[in-house]
Design a protein around this nucleic acid. Structure first.
Lengths: 155, 155
DNA sequence: GGTTGCGTTCGAGCGCACTCGAAGTTCTAG
DNA sequence: CTAGAACTTCGAGTGCGCTCGAACGCAACC
């Protein structure tokens, strides 16, 4: 698993904060400072913990447009990287590709679509909350089973 | 979405407890009292919120054995239902079918395999914890985005 | 000047977990 | 007596999200 640097950076912040997630943390999540100028595909892939194949795939299904350099190689600018951070975050929380396609379609269509984007996000928020509740339950079930097997205490 | 009765029963408990999940809650989760005797496939499907197709599928790949009545119809006994509750809970938290097959193989192989089962469960516990952390982060990212769009406050 | 390495395009293939459809049986109600 | 519902088995099909391989280009290095 790559991109651990980024994740650890954020997660350690999470531990510190220990309350509801602060906006600062998220800012840092999307923070690509420390990297100058447009990035290559391998670089971006490592940053986001996806394969170059996946990045090309996202591009060909229209989730983003990427500039090319003189050799025809992709150059990912800060804007595009920020979009990718968002997209991968949404993917990680189970948003379907078609919803992502819909969403970026709205983004690219201009400011008029903000209300509809908001609706999508609100719905997704509820979905994620439900997922967390489900997982919490599954975690408890797992821990219960571990206890019945006389499992050693967890970290 | 069916089986909401069960879920809501448990989740409402969750809200009450509001601390780390108690063993009681899990007991209630696996509690099939209120239903007497072996159940039919439709009944079980509704209880677990899966399709009858899925239940037959689980059976044919060896996750469980189900008795038949005089007509060749499946009759799910309490023991089998309890296993299914566990299996679906593990599925919901992303355990792969092959791992589930492995696990039930161990269960059916007898008590000698308890240590290996424990290992699997401990590993799964860590996976679920990681998922929850990821989702928490995604939730924060979503809420951040909602905020930038001037979204109304969430429930 | 060949080889290594990193990139490109394109279409095809894959793994997972269902999901479905066809054809048949049996029970119940009208 | 017939229609409908609910079940059975079996093999085949589906949708998702990648994932891969082939054939190629270009640039740097010993």
């Amino acid at each position: 698993m790559a991109s651990d640097d980024l994740m650890n950076k954020v997660l350690s912040n999470l531990d510190e904060v220990d309350g509801p997630m602060s906006i600062e943390v998220i800012h840092r999540l999307a923070d690509t400072s420390g990297v100058e100028g447009p990035m290559g595909i391998a670089e971006v892939a490592q940053l986001l913990d996806v394969s170059p194949h996946t990045l090309r795939y996202y591009e060909r299904i229209g989730l983003l447009q990427v500039d090319r350099d003189g050799n025809g190689h992709r150059r990912y600018g800060a804007e595009v990287v920020r979009r990718l951070v968002f997209l991968t975050r949404m993917r990680l929380s189970g948003m379907a590709m078609r919803d992502l396609q819909h969403y970026v379609g709205l983004v690219d269509a201009g400011e008029d679509t903000v209300p509809e984007r908001l609706d999508l996000l609100l719905e997704h928020r509820d979905t994620v909350r439900r997922q967390i509740r489900e997982l919490t339950l599954s975690l408890a079930a797992t821990e219960y089973k571990i206890a019945t097997y006389g499992g050693r205490a967890g970290s």
